[in-house]
Design a protein around this nucleic acid. Structure first.
Length: 402
DNA sequence: TCTGTATGGGGAA
DNA sequence: TCCCCCTACAGAT
């Protein structure tokens, strides 16, 4: 689900569903989550959400009653969330608690309802008494001017030595851009993804040429816009699109990128490049898939990386007789190391044990080598890969309709 | 049953 | 520059 637009839509969802709702402590955390407990003692409090880039802040505000003693008064608390790959909020009845609801806020009113932070993969995190992460830059959507200024004034930073597609994921400068947004933005401007970022950004001003248009868009955001916002690509530069393209997703009004939801179709139709049939894709230097059209650009990796093919260790090299054999052996040793670790983990964790056992069995048995693949040269596989999530989402949509 | 992939990012070397 | 944290799913075998 979560890039900047999804985080913002999540904050809108919280504010809409929790408007006028009183909550009551304790705030409960799942057993399995490694995130911190939220110690917030209050008989009645309200919840309000704000977003900034790829973070959401929940503010818990106590409601004072007449018999509350001054020394017992709970101060307001901010909890800052990052959603990882699968985080989102849901508001349900207590007996309909979603699977993987790792942090739960209960209503005061009975029968109780629950605002849950749901996160299947548990890559998400929260911080009680949290603040916006200091290393993250201004929000691409709602701090547009300072976002531009932050990029333009730091172009000498070595971070900009890298390909533009990789720099767009650097949250120090592009707080809110994620994998689908970088593909969509570069596609609109027909910028080869592996062009040096500095070369692309040099010459852009800290002031946006289309400022009037932007303020209109921000204005419409407060209400539900009557018409769809479309970007005039010919007028906007790359930094401009880093602002307007995510706002288009917000204006779609659904949940953004979330194949599990029935209203996913509007988002899917909005995508022009990411996972779209006929588009090319490559692994970038961080092992993430970049979708694009046309020329990949001069800084494209020589060999597209495959996550399963691990780098060889010195120990492995000592025992090698040839490059190929060595690579195969290393792959085995890496798998074995993983197996040991996973076995230990499976033994110590009783909750969620079944999937882990399956993983362990898999790891034990799978000692064969995974041949490197070059994705952009295998159209059959590419089509299948592109098709996968579509089929899945269509199936899920059908299920939802039922 | 096995493999590969997925909207992110912290931290070790 | 990597490995790792995790679950769920599609497709291959």
């Amino acid at each position: 689900m979560p890039e900047g637009p999804e985080l913002h839509l999540a904050s809108l969802f919280v504010n809409k569903t929790c408007e006028g709702v009183l909550f009551s402590s304790p705030v409960r955390k799942s057993e399995v989550s490694k995130n911190p407990d939220v110690a917030f003692a209050c008989e009645a409090y309200r919840i309000h959400a704000t977003s900034r880039g790829k973070e959401v802040k929940l503010t818990l505000t106590p409601i004072k009653s007449d018999d509350t003693k001054a020394e017992e008064t709970q101060q307001p608390m901010d909890i800052v969330f990052r959603f990882g790959m699968s985080g989102f909020f849901r508001f349900t009845a207590e007996d309909e608690l979603p699977k993987h609801a790792h942090l739960r806020f209960y209503t005061k009113e009975k029968p109780r309802k629950v605002l849950s932070f749901v996160d299947a993969r548990r890559f998400g995190s929260w911080q009680p008494h949290g603040t916006w992460q200091p290393d993250r830059g201004p929000c691409i959507m709602f701090e547009y001017n300072s976002f531009r200024e932050n990029v333009v004034s730091h172009l000498s930073d070595r971070a900009f030595d890298r390909p533009i597609c990789e720099v767009l994921l650097n949250q120090k400068y592009f707080n809110g851009i994620g994998n689908y947004l970088r593909a969509e933005i570069l596609y609109r401007l027909k910028i080869p993804p592996f062009t040096c970022a500095r070369a692309v950004l040099e010459g852009l001003g800290s002031e946006d040429a289309c400022e009037d248009e932007k303020s209109v868009k921000n204005e419409t955001l407060k209400q539900k816009p009557a018409r769809k916002i479309t970007v005039k690509d010919e007028n906007a530069d790359l930094l401009g699109l880093c602002h307007t393209v995510p706002l288009e997703v917000v204006h779609l009004g659904g949940k953004g990128y979330d194949p599990e939801k029935a209203d996913y179709s509007a988002f899917k139709a909005w995508l022009q490049c990411y996972y779209v049939d006929g588009m090319k894709f490559l692994r970038d230097h961080n092992g993430r898939t970049i979708w694009f059209q046309g020329n990949p650009g001069p800084m494209a990796p020589k060999v597209s990386k495959t996550p399963k093919v691990k780098k060889r260790t010195k120990k492995d090299e000592d025992h090698e007789s040839s490059e190929r054999e060595g690579a195969e052996r290393q792959s085995e040793s890496t798998q074995k190391k993983k197996t040991v670790k996973k076995e230990m983990k499976a033994a110590e964790t009783e909750k969620d044990a079944r999937p882990k056992e399956a993983t362990t069995r898999r790891a034990v048995k799978s000692l064969k080598v995974n041949e490197p693949r070059c994705e952009d040269e295998s159209p059959g596989r590419r089509e299948k890969m592109a098709e996968g999530p579509r089929r899945r989402s269509e199936r899920l949509t059908r299920q939802n309709v039922k």
